[in-house]
Amino acid sequence: MSIMTERDRAAVRKEFERLTGPVKLVVFSQELQAGDLCRQNESLVREVAELSDQIAVEVLNLAIDRERVQAYGVEQVPAIVVEGARDYGIRFYGVPLGYEFSNLIDAIVLASTGQPVLAEETLASLRTLAADVDIKVFSTPT
């Protein structure tokens, strides 16, 4: 049974017309830990990826692919890394449904184009950052 409705698919297909370069969605799973959520997460990502030739999916297992998982800095499951021309540092923890789903689609378009939509002053300030910035955003599906 699919997670996305036909209406969702049509809307996402329209968003994906803006994709200009390849995107890789790296899915992190672990059967023994949150197995149901990991399966749901993987299914959702595959459904999204089916909507564009530009999107590839790779699944990593926390228990098996340890070195690669560590390199991504992912410690919890389910998780998704959205990569474009490089790993931009975009991570999703938990199944991105509801509000987070639209953020996932936005992240895919962003990673594909590499073009953030921010004010010129913001971009200028970010260019001067002298330290790493870790932003966590907690949300709920509704």
Partner: peptide, 29 residues
């Protein structure tokens, strides 16, 4: 919160992690 991910693309210094609060109660606590 889309700003975080846009900032992550704008700067190699920035990392954005969206966390589904109800699925990660320990982290949320």
């Amino acid at each position: 919160m889309r700003l975080a991910q846009h900032m992550a693309v704008a700067s190699e210094r920035v990392r954005s992690t969206a966390i589904e609060a109800t699925e990660f109660p320990e982290l949320s606590r």
